[in-house]
Design a protein around this nucleic acid. Structure first.
Lengths: 227, 227, 227, 227
DNA sequence: TATGAATGAGCTTTCATTCAT
DNA sequence: CATGAATGAAAGCTCATTCAT
């Protein structure tokens, strides 16, 4: 946790330090980042750094919280999901994530690293901050989906939550790569992601995979299952 | 690539060094690993290390190749997929992966890190060695699935390959965690994974998610789509 | 170039480090010098060194600049050449060099090494700082000598400049060795080099060699030979 | 001194090792050379090296002796000096040196380094091998010159020997640089250096500088000055 | 509170040398 | 005699952290 000293800093200076840390973490990861590099990027004295943060883990957590805030702000800006059903909500979630990756690629990269770390050492998750896309987040999401009769009762929620988490964090790389020239317009806000045909068609495809599975026409697959 | 010197080493000594490196990479990742720590673990002189490998990346690639070999051996040991259809093959693939994670958790962790790295910098993949679970592997897999009429034609193979890759590498953590006491029996080989009820039921669930999607009965979703 | 940190150091500490480096370079040359040895001699931490200099070449250049400053100061202290003609100036130059070698033998040795290096890789010379004794220095010197009619027109200035450079840097070793007991008095300043009979007689001899060569018409020499 | 083992080696292998050492020394100097690099260049085992030489200084001296042999051979090939007088001999000496630098630039560079070293620590010179261009060589040369009445009696032979040594080793760089395209023809032997107009005219200029200086009566110079 | 100089541990890498085969 | 594996010292350089100002 940053010291009070840091939190009392004038906003621009604070931002300058945060940006430096974000770039460093995105470049080199938590493991490869160095205090030296951060202070150099930020243009502050090394002594100052240790008056703001106690070490490396400290500032990393702070950067993570920034990521969460920014994503939350972005989610709010995108407007609520239309909420027709859980899958509509899921689609909305993916749109938020895609926008996040376009607008804050460094923060997204850092968040992914944290997600992977959480997969390796489960239980580390902050219970009080059920962050979007975290392990317990999708578990809860699915539990409610079953209650709302949107998700089949046979689904093992923990198993499926794991799967959704993986897809949410790493499964849209290809989709983003495919946005091509549209990416810039989406990033800058010139085009609303909800109305961009290319994004929506790619999303259709991705969501269908999640909803309908990989098999042939669902009807046919049903036959297969009912064999 | 290791030097000839290393490859000519007596097998036990070679193994001892490889094990040291594997443990180090699993512990700290490529970024956090240090030659110092490896030689300390291996109990060899620092000078010797540099007669075997040219640096860090070198030994990391070597460890990766070990991982691939071990997984391949394990796949062979498990016997071929029954091959009924692509999904049967996919299920077989997941069994291999689960066994790999149980038997060689460190190598699995290292392979995952490499996979994640490949996601960040695509195109680095060795085209001539289409490793199991890699980006192009699932793409090819799906393309053939479409030809075989196992996969719906509307599926965007690149998108779906990305999704499958994510699930294959990170989506079975929960499953493995749920094996509980059975894990040890599977690991040691006392129980055949193909005949372990718990594993199979969890796999059923996971594979169903992939095959059938998250929604209720596919037929119903079909109605939803045809709205 | 030394960092600002180094330049802001209290003078005694700075001198202590510079002296350490000078001794090291004089002992072992640029090639043989080591940062380890310098910090040991200077009694500072290795980390500190790298806050002052970026490496080996860096401090070497700094030491060279010290050498130039010291020589310049010494030249000023010796008073201007009487300027009767170019050879008087040359004699004055040699006196400066001899004094420099007596008073700062380590710096002189270092400067010689740099001169030799510049001979090996010509073109590296800083054009804006035409250092005393450098390649272009004597070339210019001779060109003016021809204009002033002090130097014979048949002299190839580049060829002769090369010769003068070699003599200036390495051709007075013997002279210095011959100073014997006088050396100490000259070094300490007790005796003015311009008034020391031994030095002057040796210089006479050395300068005569150079003057006769540079100023005579070849024709005259030819006559001499045919006598 | 190389071991007997080395001297008994088949000539090609011996040459291969010597060449490796020569290239290494020319590249990096005695100080910068490394056994590792030499054996790598030579393609021999490291253990073998220590059966041939005791260390670094050892092989360096051996290489020096090769340089002397090669130069001697070259001198013989060039034919004796016409011997009209000492200056004719000196001119012949410079031709040998120029050829040596053209034909064996690496050995020449190594010899220069040794010469400089000998200047720094006088007395190290091998008295029994008065090598061409060494300190005592020119001293003897001049002493005989005085006897033969070729050199003025007022010349301080030690002083002048030092000067000649400096010029001989470093004073013909410019001359060689000026040979331009002719260099290749001289190197290959297509053109006899004694008959190459460019070389001879440059040599004229250089030798005139030395002859006029060494042979003139100071009185004559005095007259010249009082013109 | 801000600074940045100081530090020594630790990093990667190269070295000369030995010695068992 | 030839080999090349083994080694620890030492190289250059970066690191996180402290502390006096």
């Amino acid at each position: 946790m940053p010291t009070k000293t840091f939190l009392n800093l004038p906003a621009p200076k604070r931002a300058q330090i945060e940006t430096a840390a974000i770039l460093e973490f995105a470049d080199k990861g938590l493991r490869g980042a160095s205090v030296n590099a951060i202070v150099a990027r930020a243009g502050i004295a090394k002594g100052s750094y240790y008056q703001y943060f106690s070490g490396m883990e400290d500032i990393f957590q702070h950067v993570l919280s920034i990521a969460r805030q920014k994503k939350l702000a972005l989610a709010n800006a995108l407007g609520a999901s239309n909420g027709r059903d859980l899958f509509a909500y899921l689609r909305w979630l993916f749109q938020v994530e895609i926008l996040f990756e376009l607008r804050e690629p460094e923060l997204a990269a850092i968040e992914h690293e944290a997600f992977l770390q959480s997969l390796k050492s489960p239980g580390t998750e902050d219970e009080n901050t059920p962050l979007i896309g975290g392990a317990s987040f999708f578990n809860e999401f699915l539990a409610q989906g079953i209650l709302a009769d949107d998700v089949a009762t046979w689904v093992d929620t923990k198993l499926a939550a794991n799967l959704l988490g993986a897809v949410y964090h790493l499964g849209n790389r290809q989709l983003i790569a495919r946005l091509g020239e549209n990416a810039e317009a989406l990033r800058s806000g010139k085009v609303d992601i909800r109305e961009d045909p290319l994004t929506q068609s790619l999303l259709d495809n991705l969501m269908d995979l999640l909803e309908a599975g990989l098999s042939r026409e669902p009807a046919i697959r049903k036959d297969f299952y009912s064999k």
